[in-house]
Computed example of a mutant assay.
Amino acid sequence: MTHIMVLGAGYTGLLTAIRVARRTRRHGAKVTLVNASPRFTERLRLHQTAAGQRLADHAIADVIAGTGITFLHDRVAGLDPGRHEVTLLSGGVVRYDTLVYALGTVTDRSTPGVREHAHVYDDHHDAVRLAASLDRLTEGTVVVAGGGLTGVESATEIAEAHPRLRVVLLSRGTPAAMMGPRARAYVRRAMDRLGIEVRAGAEVTKMLPDAVELAGGELVPSSATLWTAGTTGLALAEESGLAVDGRGRVVVDATLRSVSHPDVYAVGDGAAVGQPYGVIHGTCQSGIPTALHAADAIADRLRGRPARPFRFGYFHQPLSLGRGDGVIQFTRGDDSPRRAYLTGRWAVAYKEAVSGSPLLTAALLKRGLVHPRALRVSNG
């Protein structure tokens, strides 16, 4: 019996496990899914949790019910790809034939003081802790460091939910810089409407207990700080001997196999996946296609068929601006912005559909009602 082991039950790990279990069921393969939490974390909604919203709770066991997948609620303590062994924090050692590395990335905490004094979004509990901190404040300043989509979504969500608090967004460049000029202007107007103070060109050098230090020595007072400025791969990948890139992500070939260990596949944020336009960046939009492709590649190889190369093109950049507003920037395959974009209630409805799509995809995959190609965006 072939044992396929999937590490991590985020968006990519969960969908890889469900898809590969269905594709290999007739061949007697055993699929094991390992995750440190028993609940599925909707990372696309962590900014909502941080703002104090109560979201639906999804138990991983319920999501995979009926698939035949064995779920292990445990944390990965070690990986030996040479011996095909995974060591769990509980002390168990599990052997595998094929491994899928779907453990994602974590917040880059290399900036001094981030680890001690900043909130991050590494898991659901992090967002809950930030929500509790904000609820305790009757006044003060909340600093969001990082002007990417996560930083903008968090700043607008917090400002809308806590109007008594001053919200400052620190960004090294222009916030939402990847969007087109008209969409960026809309984002800026939304932040102005919510009273968010935007500091573009701000380089953070240190986090302090009650302030953020900028290059040049300026201190921005902060009652609570959220750090969203960059991610890195888990140390586990490099420590295990897998080939990684400069950000600690597992380097893969055209079929998503590790270039150093062909029995290991890597998907999602924790994989360095090259395309003609460069290495894809970690989003749910790109992660789900890697999950489905890796599952099909594993199934094809078990049947003695060659696996197809992975091809992906972006389609959109969805951004919520609080609960009642948003902007959707449509893109070319290389993620550069097109002229078309959506705003307002249409964007809100669109973003909500995107946020809910992974669980819908999981339900459809369990029943064999969707083909992976229907979820991929052409790069042409």
Rank of each mutant, 00 (worst) to 15 (best):
V142I: 11
T111N: 12
T156N: 05
V144P: 00
D74L: 05
G78D: 11
D108Y: 02
E203C: 08
G201W: 12
R184G: 10
R136K: 12
G146Q: 07
T174F: 14
V144W: 09
V94I: 13
E116V: 05
V198R: 01
A190I: 03
S154N: 10
R172S: 11
V204L: 00
A145P: 11
P209N: 04
T138Y: 14
V86M: 10
I196Q: 10
T111L: 13
D97T: 04
Y96C: 08
V168T: 11
V120P: 06
P81D: 04
G104V: 05
E203V: 13
G146P: 01
A185I: 07
Y96T: 12
M207Q: 11
E203K: 06
A177E: 13
T174S: 14
H124E: 08
A118G: 02
M178Y: 14
A202C: 04
G140E: 08
S171W: 03
L130M: 14
K206F: 11
V187F: 03
I158P: 01
A202N: 06
R184C: 03
L170F: 04
E203T: 11
M179T: 01
M207L: 13
A159R: 00
V204E: 01
V143L: 08
A190N: 04
G92V: 14
S110C: 07
P181K: 07
P163Y: 01
T150C: 08
M207W: 12
G78T: 01
L169Y: 00
A161C: 06
E157N: 11
A200T: 14
V106A: 10
A132K: 12
D74M: 05
D108G: 01
R172P: 06
Y101D: 03
G173R: 13
P209S: 05
G195L: 02
D74C: 02
D126E: 08
G92C: 14
G148R: 00
G148I: 00
R164N: 10
A177P: 01
S154M: 07
V144F: 08
V167F: 05
G78P: 06
G140S: 09
R189D: 13
D74N: 04
M191K: 08
V168G: 02
P175M: 06
R83F: 09
R129F: 13
H119S: 13
I158E: 00
P112N: 03
V76N: 00
D210S: 10
R75L: 08
L89R: 13
P175R: 07
A183C: 12
G113C: 05
D97I: 05
D97P: 02
L194C: 06
R136P: 07
S171Q: 07
T205H: 09
D80P: 03
L169R: 04
M191D: 01
H162S: 09
G173S: 15
V128R: 15
S90A: 05
A183S: 13
E153Y: 11
D108I: 06
L149M: 10
R172K: 09
H124K: 10
R182D: 15
